[in-house]
Design a protein around this nucleic acid. Structure first.
Length: 253
DNA sequence: AACCAGGACGTGA
DNA sequence: TCACGTCATGGT
């Protein structure tokens, strides 16, 4: 262990408390509530529909933060979080539907089902050999929870669950206030100029949590808005000309 | 026709 | 610790 106080004396991030919440409300105004995490069997009246959202509208439940509300839905969110690693959600949705059709959105059944059958079901989501192992490892862990909320450190011990997936599970499946950092978060806020390229996961996470109200609903919404903004404008090759945040962004192209 | 998608793991420096 | 290869399918 090196000298005390990692990160505190390094001026790694310029703290501008107002900025992060300003950007949050700006994104919220532009894109409206995103209704994460999508659920397969979520069917509700038109009040749940967000017309500004990209991709499939099915499964999203904007403005409703009480999901998932059953053990089965909690498991579905966790499985989705694993399946969506480096994969687009539309592909994950296909895999989840396949899993549901073979009765494998339930941990014991998933474990008991023939591996080739499960692999075929999750094939659309890619990396099916890797992800099969991950799903089994998580299912076994999930059973040991007996309905309790998992600790982050225990989630990280499970094969296939790293920082982002662990935090996605805690935030969206268990509705606990922990901020999810992903590649989009780094990309957007590097370009804006609030974090450095060398910033690591934990530092970025602390940066957000220190500058936002400790509210799982805000954390859920912010992460979803970040994903939406990254898909629309802050892509690998960004569309700065039409970006609604260009006035506050440092990067100009 | 490359490039990328709501990452994590294993390896060797 | 850190950079890099690997895992795989499908949309743009």
């Amino acid at each position: 262990m090196g000298p005390a106080k990692q990160g505190c004396d390094r001026n790694e991030m310029i703290i501008m408390p107002a900025e992060l919440s300003k950007i949050y409300f700006k994104l919220l105004n532009i894109y409206d509530p995103q209704g994460w995490w999508p659920l397969l069997d979520f069917h509700d009246s038109a009040k749940g529909i967000n017309p500004t959202k990209t991709g499939s509208l099915k499964g999203y439940h904007p403005g409703l933060y009480h999901y998932p509300k059953s053990e089965r839905q909690v498991f579905e969110v966790c499985i989705g979080a694993i399946l969506t690693q480096s994969t687009s959600w539309s592909q994950v949705e296909k895999a989840l539907i396949n899993l549901r059709n073979i009765g494998c959105l339930e941990p014991k059944k998933l474990i008991a089902t023939d591996s080739d059958v499960v692999k075929l079901a999750i094939k659309p989501a890619g990396y099916f050999n890797q992800k099969y192992k991950k799903l089994i490892a998580f299912s076994e862990f999930f059973i040991t929870l007996k309905g309790k909320i998992p600790e982050r450190k225990d989630l990280l011990k499970v094969f296939g669950i790293g920082d982002e997936t662990a935090d996605s599970i805690i935030l969206y499946a268990y509705r606990q206030p922990i901020f999810v950092v992903d590649a989009y978060t780094k990309r957007i806020f590097e370009r804006i100029g609030l974090i450095k390229k060398s910033s690591k996961y934990h530092n970025i996470q602390i940066f957000f949590e220190k500058n936002l109200a400790r509210d799982f609903k805000i954390y859920q919404e912010y992460h979803a808005l970040i994903v939406e903004h990254a898909k629309r404008f802050c892509k690998v090759r960004p569309d700065c000309a039409h970006c609604p945040l260009k006035d506050i962004c440092k990067k100009k192209l």
